[in-house]
Simulated assay, not measured.
Amino acid sequence: MTLNFSQRCTPAAGTRRLVAKTLAALTLATGVTSPALAADEVNIYSYRQPFLIQPMLDQFTKDTGIKTNIVFAQDGVAERLKREGKNSPADLVLTVDIARLQELVDAGLTQPVDSDVLEENIPAQYRGGNDEWFGLTLRTRNIYASKERVEDTDLSYEDLAKPEWKGKICARSGKHPYNIALIASMIAHHGEEETETWLKGVKNNLAQKPQGGDRDQIRAVAEGVCDLAIGNSYYYGAMVADPEQRGFAEKVNVVFPNQGDRGAHVNVSGVVLTKSAPNKAEAVKLMEFLTSEEAQEMYANMNVEFPVNKAVEGSGLLKEWAGFKADKLPLDEISKHREAAVKLVDKVDFDS
């Protein structure tokens, strides 16, 4: 069951009864059933678009009889949870990057989960050291390279700042969470001063003002606007599966950077258990299911995202890309530098 309404809708401020009344009013406005506050259900606030995870949720309900309800929001989930306080109906929050996971933890909106299943299914690198966030899928920050104009694809992130790529690089906004995480990883490896120099170099090499999303970067390379671009591999997979966009994807190579040294930067989609989760036991069962081989296979085959569970290989492009070297730096360490990364983007005026 999915609710899709504006973050500006005012959530309950006082009692559980007010929460129910607010959700009932939203039901009338949207024409769908509101998330119940009873047992045998899990209520989810999601940064991820529901259609990307609905098949897994449907399978969970089929396997367990536990219903799931989703509220989708593009931003503002942390603020919403703060306003709702202990009366929030949310059990879980699904996010698309480490920054938003850490934001929820830092705000004191989550609680740790002690689960042998999660510990077994998720490598330590992709779960919080305090057991308050857990990765569900992996996404690498890749370089898209023109098949026609780039012969040497043994590239590193550091190479993007070299003068030879002057006017040949495309990127989306430096402030996008995916790029902030990459810049934070550069700070973790090289320090702020060296990363600032690198970021200035990348900016000087841009073929156009940062714009669009990751798919737009693939298209820009295919159309000759630039020779290299930065983006996540699963966007390439989505374009290959789309007859209208496949032609653009077929004109680029997906490069996994830094294979000769530290490895490619890896981010996660992930989940947290809210501090006030009214259906904690059911929510933990869903967390465990989402890391199971059954759900991880579905994630991999549907969304072209790397499974976090190492027992699952994936197929198609994921199998073709298997074996790449990933940066082993824990995401907890990278997330410590995200504020510094945001400041650097502003300092070098990357998006101008």
Rank of each mutant, 00 (worst) to 15 (best):
K21N: 07
K275Y: 06
Y299A: 03
D261Y: 08
I334K: 12
I230C: 00
A124H: 10
Y235F: 15
R8M: 09
N267T: 14
K336F: 02
K200R: 15
M302E: 02
T197N: 06
E119D: 12
E250A: 10
K168D: 14
L318A: 07
L331H: 09
Y126G: 09
V268W: 07
N232I: 03
L26G: 03
N142Q: 13
P210W: 03
G85Q: 09
E305K: 01
E79R: 14
R141H: 09
S233E: 15
A341M: 08
I98W: 05
L136R: 02
T2C: 05
A39W: 05
Q296V: 02
A277T: 11
T2V: 15
V32C: 03
F5D: 11
N142G: 05
N279I: 05
T140I: 11
K347D: 04
L81H: 07
Y126E: 10
L37K: 07
A20D: 12
A238P: 00
S335F: 04
G135N: 08
V225H: 12
N301C: 00
D351N: 14
V272W: 04
A238N: 06
K82C: 07
A78M: 10
G224L: 11
A90W: 05
W321Q: 09
L331K: 06
R215Q: 14
L28H: 12
M1A: 14
Q49S: 07
D114P: 02
I230N: 00
G224T: 12
T140Q: 13
A124P: 05
A107C: 06
A229N: 11
T10Y: 08
K203E: 01
K203R: 15
L81V: 09
M1C: 09
S146F: 01
L18I: 10
F60L: 12
S276E: 13
W198T: 00
K147W: 04
R338L: 12
S34H: 08
G270I: 10
D349F: 00
K328Q: 14
A90C: 10
M302Q: 12
R100W: 03
L228C: 07
F248I: 01
Y45N: 10
E193D: 13
A145K: 02
N69M: 04
T22Q: 09
A311N: 14
E194P: 00
K347R: 13
K175W: 00
S46G: 08
Y234P: 06
E103A: 11
A12D: 04
S233C: 03
N179T: 01
E132F: 05
V342E: 10
E282I: 08
I230F: 00
R219V: 14
V268M: 12
G128V: 13
V252T: 10
V266A: 13
C170G: 13
A281H: 02
Y235E: 15
V202L: 05
E297I: 03
L290C: 03
S269C: 05
L94I: 14
V240L: 15
A300D: 04
V284Q: 07
S34W: 00
E313T: 13
D116V: 12
T61P: 03
S335D: 09
T274E: 08
G167I: 11
G231R: 02
V71P: 00
F5Y: 15
D114F: 02
W321E: 08
A78T: 09
